[in-house]
Design a protein around this nucleic acid. Structure first.
Length: 817
RNA sequence: GCGGACAUGGCGGAAUGGCAGACGCGCCGGUCUUAGGAGCCGGUGAGCAAUCGUAAGGGUUCAAGUCCCUUUGUCCGCACCA
């Protein structure tokens, strides 16, 4: 029977009946935890991206399985989140109903892929049996000071009607709906990810992750070394600190600037300036992030009327406020050195502030202001003549003595804002009591269940706030009437620990069992999109480290090894989207060609980490390839031999075919190991071509043909599991190809030695001709053979040989004059 | 503006510093056939040739797609970060 979806179904059923891919919990010696980023249960059907991610990661695990690994390969759903809620608002279908319906469909679809998923460990984040533990984790963080509530200016998406984490704002727009975000002062829940800024950086070098992703995290964390310097405010008891990376320019400070949102501003503004300060703050508050970005170059600000005291000279310098100083970075206050900082320079010029020079160029560089490079100090009193490097030390040392400054490291990373004003998420397990304040829900009362009947039309307030039955409760501490927290958790909280839950999916006593989890994790191979570099992947690392410090885990990093798949584009090279009408529906192709052909095309047609545009011609090519193998098997049906390949006639053709077989084993194994699916497939095509080539006279011995075909099927099986099983059976095998005692072929090095090799002969590195010689020849013999060659003698005639380079098995290079 | 990645036939894409273009598509030819849009076999970077060819220019090296510098272009990340 020719390969088709009927064959897919046949083997899926047989595998399921035999429970072939069950994870063996009793023996973790060769456990391998392979995980793909779980999917959001959106529309009905799996899209090409799912197949590309799940299907090919599955191919990798299938090789590992045949290599004897006990593979843990779970699946689940990141099921809370806005799309279901927005869909509900549009259609009236409750998020819970649509989500579970979608999950059912996707599960069915996932099964048609014929992957090795361990569905008996499935995790669904919107299920109370899951979010109970999300809430539990929240409480552990809260009880240990890693979750806190504060009023702060936060990012607000007016379209989604909720706050967003910094990571979810991209170019001043919402990462989900791309609406312009604004700022709002709100009391929100945060996780103290900044406590882990340094460790999150320190662990990066040892991770087997794409360098690009590590770089993104490094930049996002944004470590900056500098100093904090204290300034007193003249004629008051107030003082503030600035962060600077250039303490060497301290003597050039002519004013200081506070962020408009800085808390001191109201207290220090003089009566004369108060109105202007208020007006400016108002103005800044109103403009959106986008406008704030687009007005980048035009500096604005107002004088507060107050003065700060220079910590070394004691001079008074004016205190301004300006929106070029960010409240959330450093201390929200900067010392302005207009002579040596671009921004301060522009600002000082605009407002007529003095611009002295305190650093002189040492070399022949330009010496115009602002001069931002390092140099030698001038106009700096006792520090004159020092280099910038030395002055940094000297100035900070002096400040330290007076208790007015010290070295300081600042990070760009902010605490993670986790509360959301939306319905479809995990409730926050906190009760607000007038007397006792924020009180955690006792753990034995978890989960705080999300009520079903809620009016979730967004109006900027949490939908749960309108649900009396939910809010009203009693204080666990004092027993008086109290109110539940009405916000829900960012879905990234749910996804920041799901990899811990998988091995514990059926544990209803605890989120995860410490001992078991320490054995099952970290995840050995994690496969998913690069778009999560600064969000999910950072949050998951943080949660892992936090849980470790709270004593629940013994490892530092959740994902040892990470691979990002690329994106499959439409035929037009554009991102697939319904509105562009360029989507490729896997189902249509699978119905026509079968799931294995679909998967093999994805494997072969792209560099895995790059992706690229879909091509119908490409998939036809794979269909042809499958046919070629089918016809080979068909041709020899009934004649297959179980004998070793060495029995029977073993001539030149046999030897060469065997050579190709063993080199194919070698390269498919190494390429598949590192997710180079396209070259693995190319090698399999070569082996198939070789079978046709040497088989043309039909003189090959059957034991060899049979053995090579069996190896071909084994090597192909990760990409075409159903097809390989079917062919395996047609070859007369009784057990499954994927039987637990099957094994991945191992190359025989002795079969990979050729009697003769062809080598290139170069003249000054330029290819001139080729010579054939015994592969055992040593360098001297190789050189001699080359010299004796008639053609070589021709082009060497009349030239003086300066040097001869011999690279064994590759080339001889004559360096001549 | 800063930082990073990338640039190879008509196309998708291969090449531990060592014979560029594996493998596939497309195209051309052969074969089989009543027929071929099936199958099988062969050819296919450019050029009549010597030679020339990996975005452009320079450099290191016996040898560069690969390493270094400059430029251009594309993509990504960050962006008034003090």
């Amino acid at each position: 029977m020719a390969y088709s979806t009927a064959i897919d179904k046949k083997w899926q059923q047989k595998w399921e009946d035999a429970d072939l891919y069950r994870f063996d919990e009793s023996n973790l010696e060769k456990k391998l935890y392979c995980l793909e980023m779980f999917s959001y249960p959106s529309g009905a059907n799996l899209h090409v991206g799912h197949w590309y991610n799940f299907g090919l990661a599955d191919s990798w695990t299938r090789m590992k399985r045949l290599q004897g690994y006990n593979v843990f390969h779970p699946q689940g759903f990141d099921a809370f989140g806005l799309p279901a809620e927005n869909y509900a608002i549009k259609t009236g279908i409750h998020p819970k109903d649509s989500t579970y319906a979608n999950i059912a469909t996707m599960e069915r679809q996932l099964k048609t892929m014929g992957a090795t998923f361990n569905f008996d460990y499935e995790v669904v984040t919107c299920d109370p049996t899951y979010y109970k533990w999300t809430q539990w984790i929240f409480l552990q963080l809260y009880k240990n000071g890693l979750a806190y509530r504060k009023n702060a200016p936060v990012n607000w998406c007016p379209s989604c009607q909720t706050v967003l984490a910094n990571e979810q704002v991209q170019d001043g727009t919402c990462e989900r709906c791309h609406a312009e975000t604004t700022r709002r002062d709100l009391t929100q829940w945060f996780f103290k990810i900044t406590n882990y800024a340094q460790e999150l950086l320190d662990c990066l070098p040892d991770l087997d992750w794409p360098e690009k992703t590590k770089k993104i995290q490094t930049n996002w964390i944004g470590r900056s070394e500098g100093s904090e310097i204290a300034f007193d405010i003249a004629d008051t008891d107030f003082s503030f600190r600035v962060f600077t990376t250039r303490p060497d320019t301290l003597m050039g400070v002519t004013y200081v600037v506070l962020a408009p949102e800085q808390e001191l501003v109201n207290r220090i503004a003089t009566d004369a300036c108060r109105a202007a300060v208020e007006a400016y703050k108002d103005k800044v508050n109103k403009i959106s992030e986008i406008d704030r970005l687009s007005t980048t170059k035009e500096k604005s600000g107002v004088f507060t009327g107050a003065y700060a005291v220079h910590p070394i000279t004691g001079e008074k310098v004016p205190i301004w406020i300006a929106d070029y100083v960010l409240a959330g970075y450093g201390t929200g206050c900067v010392m302005a050195v207009p002579g040596h900082d671009e921004r301060d320079f522009v600002f000082a010029e605009k407002f007529g502030l003095p611009i002295p020079r305190v650093i002189q160029a040492t070399g022949t560089e330009d010496d115009i202001l602002p001069f931002t490079a390092y140099g030698k100090l001038v106009n700096s009193g006792e520090f004159d003549g020092l280099t910038s490097e030395n002055a940094k030390k000297a100035i900070v040392e002096k400040l330290e003595k007076d208790n007015k400054g010290e070295q300081k490291i600042t990070y760009r990373l902010r605490d993670w804002l986790v509360s959301r004003q939306r319905y479809w998420g995990s409730p926050i397990p906190i009760i607000h009591c007038d007397d006792c304040g924020a009180v955690p829900v006792p753990e034995d009362q978890l989960p705080v269940e999300l009520p079903y009947d809620v009016d979730f039309a967004p109006d900027g307030e949490s939908p749960l706030a309108k649900c009396d039955a939910f809010i009203r409760t009693t204080c666990p501490k004092c027993g008086k009437a109290a109110k539940r927290d009405v916000d829900t958790l960012d879905t990234f909280v749910c996804s920041s620990w799901y990899f811990l839950r998988y091995p514990n999916a059926n544990n209803n006593m605890e989120a995860f069992n410490r001992e078991w989890t320490n054995k099952m994790l970290p995840v050995d191979k994690y496969v998913g999109g690069a778009e999560h570099a600064a969000m999910h992947l950072l949050y998951a690392r943080f949660i892992t480290k936090a849980l470790r410090d709270l004593g629940y885990l013994d490892f530092d990093e959740p994902f040892k090894s990470l691979v990002h798949q690329g994106t499959i584009l439409g035929i037009d090279g554009q991102k697939m989207s319904k509105s562009k009408g360029n989507t490729v529906a896997p189902d249509d192709y699978i119905a026509k060609y079968g799931s294995d052909v679909f998967r093999m095309y994805l494997a072969f047609g792209f560099a895995y980490t790059e992706g690229g545009p879909w091509s119908d011609d490409g998939i036809k090519a794979i269909d042809r390839f499958v046919g070629r193998i089918e016809r080979l098997i068909e041709k020899y049906k009934g004649q297959f031999s179980k004998k070793g390949p060495e029995s029977g006639v073993y001539g030149e053709a046999e030897k060469e075919l065997d050579f190709v077989r063993h080199t194919t084993i070698t390269s498919v194994t190494t390429d598949l190991e590192v997710f180079q699916f396209n070259t693995s497939m190319a090698r399999l095509m070569e082996l198939t071509n070789a079978l046709y080539h040497y088989d043309s006279g039909n003189t090959l011995n059957m034991p060899l043909i049979s053995s090579v075909l069996r190896d071909l099927l084994l090597l192909l099986s990760p990409f075409a599991p159903h097809f390989a099983e079917e062919m395996w059976q047609q070859m007369g095998e009784k057990d499954f190809l994927f039987a637990r005692n099957s094994s991945w072929p191992i190359a025989d090095k002795t079969k990979m030695v050729k009697d003769e090799v062809e080598m290139a002969v170069q003249l000054n590195g330029q290819l001139k001709c080729r010579i054939v010689l015994p592969s055992t020849a040593d360098n001297a013999a190789i050189e001699q053979t080359a010299r004796n060659d008639a053609k070589v003698q021709d082009f060497l005639a009349g030239k003086q040989i300066v040097k001869v380079i011999v690279v064994k098995g590759r080339l001889v290079n004559f360096v001549v004059k």
